[in-house]
Design a protein around this nucleic acid. Sequence first.
DNA 1: CCTGCCTCCTTAATCAATTAAGACCTTAAT
DNA 2: ATTAAGGTCTTAATTGATTAAGGAGGCAGG
Lengths: 352, 352
Amino acid sequence: MAKVTLQTIADRLGVSRATVSYAFSRPDQVSAELRRRVMEVADELGYAGPNPTARSLRLGRAGALGLLFSETLAYAFADPYAVGFFQGLATAAEDAGVGLLILPLPHGDKRTEPVRNAVVDAFCVVSLPDGHPALDEVLGRKLPVVVVDEPYVPGHPFLGIDEPAAGALAARHVLELGHRRLGVAMVGLHDDGHIGWADVARQRAATFEAMRGRRDGYQAAAEEAGVDWAGVPFYELSRNSREAGRQAGHALLARSPRPTAILTNTDVLALGVLDAAADLGLDVPGELSVVGFSDSAAQDAGLTTIRQAKQEIGAEAGRLLLAGAPARPERLLFPHSLIVRASTAPPPLERH
Amino acid sequence: MAKVTLQTIADRLGVSRATVSYAFSRPDQVSAELRRRVMEVADELGYAGPNPTARSLRLGRAGALGLLFSETLAYAFADPYAVGFFQGLATAAEDAGVGLLILPLPHGDKRTEPVRNAVVDAFCVVSLPDGHPALDEVLGRKLPVVVVDEPYVPGHPFLGIDEPAAGALAARHVLELGHRRLGVAMVGLHDDGHIGWADVARQRAATFEAMRGRRDGYQAAAEEAGVDWAGVPFYELSRNSREAGRQAGHALLARSPRPTAILTNTDVLALGVLDAAADLGLDVPGELSVVGFSDSAAQDAGLTTIRQAKQEIGAEAGRLLLAGAPARPERLLFPHSLIVRASTAPPPLERH
DNA sequence: CCTGCCTCCTTAATCAATTAAGACCTTAAT
DNA sequence: ATTAAGGTCTTAATTGATTAAGGAGGCAGG
């Protein structure tokens, strides 16, 4: 079965290729009778319709939006925050009738061919660490780009929240409740797979801008309240999973003196910290307060968290990229808010 | 800024287009010195690299896998079963270095251009109702296709579980515990948005093959145990959400006599039924048993459910499509198993 | 009969690359 | 001096479509 193209059909009918093309894509340009015959022959020969790649080439549009995640896809789909963002973006893509091309970025691997070869009209970059090679590759494509959450790339629209402000809001909440012995569990600061305590220098050196900003907010609020940040135990994770959160929880809760409030930068991590507290028979919020982030998995667990407009961000990213006119390079900050649920309360009274 | 192509660079350097192409894609075919100059000029002119569409056309490979869902994307991402499947497929795509092109299929709309124009090497179709127009469109593309869950398309590989057997397994579990008054809540039977009671005729006429099979399993097990199926209240939903499950739960639990066991075809629905039970102050499993499906959201809630190998199915689908050699059109059934947790128990004793 | 206007179709340029085959020059071996 | 072998670049065919411009024929109106 040789390849069937427009030309094959044209030859069969003794007409020109152009005519066959018109029969498919502009029926009014061709007599009904001939069109019928074209379709008949196409059917007979098993023609698969105008080749989309050739069509794309000629028309100069790919009909797809490229999507880049730092994490492997398997992991990205597991993160409720990412899923929320996806939903928003997908809705925008749907409205525009374009596909969403999800590009894999294998972990350590530096293969960026998928980005170089992606047949897309624009890129949406989500949470790439500072200086990730794929980002250069994307910018090299000279297509419209928006960046979500991180990193900020001058000259392209940026969508996200005011991370330091959001972090400070979370921290201030427990500080205002009276907590002074804080603990922090964070994921997504570095790319190196490190798990364990992180000192202030390492915290500051985080390669992921958004998380770095979030942490800066924690610290600023703590210092504002007179808490010495260097004394705050800070546990770093490499995977955003409930199990990882539990591990961090155990590490933090084993400290003496034990923290009375733990800040986490994802809800999933916070759930794990709650697991750890349960393991130790600690009452939440009586003996321990826990704050999550994103309001992605928090509701059922009664978790206090920071809500961010995931879906709105995704939808707006899609809209910017599909609008036709190139978007102005603005820094668009979306609202966030503190959602107080049942995982935070004033600290237990000190014993004397 | 005019368009920059290989030719632009070639003209600038007074060499042929072929040479420039070689400089980019086969460095060993060109002297180091010339290659350096090519790169220099490319940089200077702001060349974005070989056009992926043209490249795709020439090479005859798109570097992407098309993915089709019946649901809108926003909804698909919200379903934990779908997410699990995604993860498996994404991993396979990642390994092969190809992208995943997610194609939108707007709800009622019959626009199938996205499928016609998708630049992909193969399609993976997931859970399309019988006779969905997009399926014809996909088959018309004459590319490799695998179908997951439904519908079965002769001539193409099919991946899924033995739905009637899995359904029967779920039903048999509660029947063996002694339940005789069953209730059923199902989603994804029809495409018409109907919410409410469904009689046997309507149940049988379901356009989604997998769910139809699952239901057949329920009925077979019930009749095997001597339960009259026509007397089993059957509530149909159009959305797979916790809230929908709650609605179905209330409808079913308001029946007299009240069912002692409720079968649902998704875990999310089952959670909603548990909510309804809680609303009514019913003890689960003391007064009511609930069975979910998929083991996607069941663990934390202690839900008895049927586990299916979501990720494995996704991974295998990817492998089949990316293997190079066309896959044999087999019906691949993956294992499923009953996971008994805390939501099922023998029915309460009858009062006299 | 001539003109103008449709309708239907063809011609040919264009989109932006890849790559087998061949030309040309230099160097090394016989 | 002759031949072979490399290295470097060019020629030209190929991938599969879209579409502006133009031509041929039919038909109506002046």
